[in-house]
Design a protein around this nucleic acid. Structure first.
Lengths: 140, 140
DNA sequence: GGATTTACTTGAGTGAATCAAGCATCATTG
DNA sequence: CAATGATGCTTGATTCACTCAAGTAAATCC
């Protein structure tokens, strides 16, 4: 998604701010990735490889088709950011892991994606707790 | 975007909840659109046509290339949800407007996309105000 | 040891998005 | 008022994300 998941009609102010937040967040994420010549999806996958894991686990976690993961990982592999090796325990499975360059790029991404950090940082500690509690409640 | 714009490392709890919110929001939006056989982008554009407007204005508002809007609007037009007429005042420009069917689909979308409404609804009125204030502050 | 399930890949197809070019119309101004 | 240039949109070429349907290969299960 690049287009904002925008308001049809926002009845309450809170809804409008929520939408705003989501929009800005998504754009910031994409921009941070683009700064490293990555797509959002690539940055996302890279970020979930702190430990090596299988394609299936990734697909599950990302909530998308395994073939989609295959394709994204293939591109990351072509960029030299990731390796994909056959699991010796189960030779059907492939274990995906970041390369050192992948680690570095991932770290630079984490540094570049300042939005959430910055936003939260604008709040005092007790406000951060309030926000957390309110969002948890809102999420049900 | 369908993959979550996920946490590389979330240092604070507030950041983690923020990410969660964005993820769930985006998925809910996409699901609501999919329920009407629309893409997120299509639903988004449709939702911004309460008044007829030009392609350029849409592109500006959505923060994307005009040619992208051309393409999305063309699909909406093919679905009979939108018309695209030459502006009599400036015959280069096209005015995009929802058809009656477009209105109806848009309305059904607004009904189907319950996430923001529901989430906010889980909060008491004063909590909603707190949330609004906190998010505004966080957004800077 | 043959059927089934599991883990992933491949292929075909759609849509979003971008960039570069093109075309038509409007606006300027020389 | 005609040439020039800017504006508004479309077209074409590409890339990527995503899904679904099929395929392959390795495990698992009688």
């Amino acid at each position: 998604m690049a287009l904002p998941n925008g308001p049809v009609v926002t009845s309450s102010e809170a809804e409008a701010v929520l939408f705003d937040l989501v929009d800005v967040y998504d754009r910031a994420y994409e921009a941070a990735a683009a700064g490293l010549s990555l797509s959002s999806a690539q940055a996302c996958v890279l970020g979930r490889l702190d430990e090596r894991r299988g394609m299936g686990a990734l697909a599950e976690e990302l909530g998308c088709d395994a073939s989609n993961v295959t394709q994204i990982v293939a591109r990351l592999e072509a960029l030299g950011l990731v390796t994909r090796e056959t699991d010796p325990r189960d030779r059907r499975a492939r274990l995906v892991a970041r390369t050192p360059r992948g680690d570095e790029v991932n770290h630079r991404f984490a540094t570049a994606f300042t939005f959430a950090r910055t936003a939260v940082g604008r709040l005092a500690p007790d406000e951060q707790d309030q926000l957390t509690a309110l969002l948890r409640k809102a999420l049900g």
